[in-house]
Simulated assay, not measured.
Amino acid sequence: MFALTLSGARTQLSNFANILRILPRRGDAREEGKEIVNSFVIHRKIRMSDADIYGNVHNLSIIRYAEDLAVEFATAQRDETGVQTYWGTAQVQATFSLPLPWTLGEVETRLVVEKLGRASITVRTDIVSAHGQHATVGARYIRFDSTGSRAAMTPQEREWYQRYLVDETVQEEVDVML
């Protein structure tokens, strides 16, 4: 197992729906610790070009899967609340635990919100298949308005993102297990 940390400048999120197999299932619940946590889930096809020379999905492709899911998450928020947001990447950290063979055809990506700030959001994406959990990608995004200035979340946004917020007591239990 190893970890990779990336930091980047702000970028406007765009829609990557053309590479996703199905629309996200909102409100899927899964158990984590003692609480039920809603996760934002998308199944996506694995492309042959995602593979490395050993037949596994390259680690940077896995990070891209998590980024694509974050884009779909922000897009779903916009579609439901009508609030257009722009997010810039502040930090990305990935832990890879199991090789992901490209021959699987598809992989499940699950996103939960770990922390909501005034103008930022921290998310965790798990990359899983029938073989188990392959990676966990954590990211922190900063919110901007249409002019490129940092801006606080609206109440409608915050309420929407809170559906996927991990309970702090559950998060502490998860941190202890790691």
Rank of each mutant, 00 (worst) to 15 (best):
I53K: 01
P24G: 09
D28A: 14
V57P: 00
E67R: 03
I36W: 14
I63P: 00
R26E: 09
D79S: 06
T81R: 05
R78T: 09
K45A: 15
R26Y: 06
R44G: 14
E31Q: 15
I22A: 11
N56I: 01
Q84D: 15
R44D: 03
D52I: 07
H58Q: 11
R64F: 00
E31K: 12
A70R: 12
N15S: 12
F40V: 11
V83S: 05
I22M: 05
D79G: 02
E32Q: 12
G55V: 07
A74T: 09
A29T: 12
L60E: 07
S49Q: 14
Y54C: 02
A17D: 13
R78F: 04
S14H: 08
N38D: 15
V83H: 09
M48N: 03
E32M: 15
R78K: 03
T81F: 05
V41L: 13
T75D: 07
V37H: 10
K45H: 15
D68N: 08
G82P: 03
F40T: 07
A17L: 02
A76D: 04
K34G: 13
I42Q: 12
L60H: 04
S61C: 07
F73E: 04
V41P: 00
L60R: 06
E31W: 10
A74Q: 08
R64L: 06
V57W: 01
S39I: 07
E72M: 10
R25C: 00
H43A: 11
T75S: 02
I53M: 09
H43K: 05
I22G: 02
A70T: 11
L13Y: 10
H43R: 14
I36N: 13
S39V: 15
N56C: 09
L60N: 06
I46V: 14
G27D: 12
I22L: 08
R78C: 04
A17Q: 07
I63K: 00
F16H: 08
M48Q: 02
A51T: 15
R21P: 03
